Amino acid sequence: MSLQRGDAVILSINAANRDSAVYSDAETFDPDRPERNHLGFGHGVHFCIGASLARVELRIVFATPARRLPGLRLSREPDEPEVRTTLTGGVTELPVSW
């Protein structure tokens, strides 16, 4: 497939990181995936200026509940989480028990 002058092109951030030629089992959510060259914060001159801050915030968001609520666990097996299709993406719910 090739693009021709006048072809419509739609870019979607939700499609990033789903290239099966780059990522094994690309359609499956796997936070432990060994491939780390994702496009979540952009690339090159378009790299997100707030990427470092966002990474620190994510570490805090995930570590704090685990530290403050010992025994916190998933309520059920996370088969395939329902993913939001908004600009920011993310899962719609993550049921936990304490």
Rank of each mutant, 00 (worst) to 15 (best):
M1L: 03
S2V: 15
Q4P: 01
Q4Y: 08
R5S: 13
R5A: 15
R5C: 13
D7F: 03
D7Q: 04
D7W: 09
D7A: 05
A8F: 07
A8D: 11
A8L: 12
A8Y: 04
V9A: 01
I10S: 10
L11P: 01
L11F: 12
L11D: 08
S12F: 13
I13T: 14
I13Q: 14
I13L: 13
N14I: 06
A15D: 15
A16T: 03
A16Q: 12
N17H: 11
R18P: 04
R18H: 14
D19C: 07
D19P: 04
D19T: 00
D19A: 04
S20V: 01
V22E: 10
V22H: 09
Y23H: 09
S24F: 04
S24V: 04
S24M: 01
S24H: 09
S24Q: 11
S24D: 12
D25S: 11
A26F: 09
A26V: 04
T28V: 13
F29Q: 00
D30F: 06
D30A: 13
D30W: 06
P31L: 13
D32T: 02
D32C: 06
R33F: 01
R33M: 00
P34C: 03
P34N: 05
E35F: 04
E35M: 08
H38K: 04
G40I: 05
G40K: 03
G40N: 10
G40A: 14
G40P: 07
G40L: 07
H43K: 10
H43F: 11
G44R: 10
G44E: 12
G44H: 10
V45A: 13
V45H: 01
F47I: 09
F47R: 02
C48H: 01
C48M: 00
C48E: 03
C48L: 03
C48N: 04
I49R: 12
G50S: 14
A51E: 12
A51G: 11
S52F: 12
A54V: 06
A54Q: 05
R55G: 03
E57R: 06
E57I: 02
L58N: 09
R59I: 02
R59T: 06
R59H: 08
V61H: 08
V61P: 00
A63W: 02
A63S: 14
P65M: 09
A66C: 06
A66H: 12
R67M: 13
R67A: 14
R68L: 15
P70T: 10
G71W: 14
G71C: 07
L72S: 01
R73L: 00
R73P: 02
L74C: 05
S75T: 07
E77Y: 10
E77S: 10
P78D: 00
P78A: 09
P78K: 00
P78I: 00
E80A: 15
E80S: 14
E80L: 09
E80N: 11
P81V: 00
P81T: 02
E82S: 13
E82K: 13
E82P: 10
V83S: 09
V83P: 02
V83M: 15
R84K: 12
T85A: 11
T86C: 11
L87Q: 11
L87T: 10
L87S: 13
T88V: 14
T88F: 10
G89T: 12
V91Y: 03
V91M: 10
T92C: 11
E93D: 14
E93L: 00
L94I: 08
P95Y: 00
P95C: 02
P95Q: 01
W98L: 14
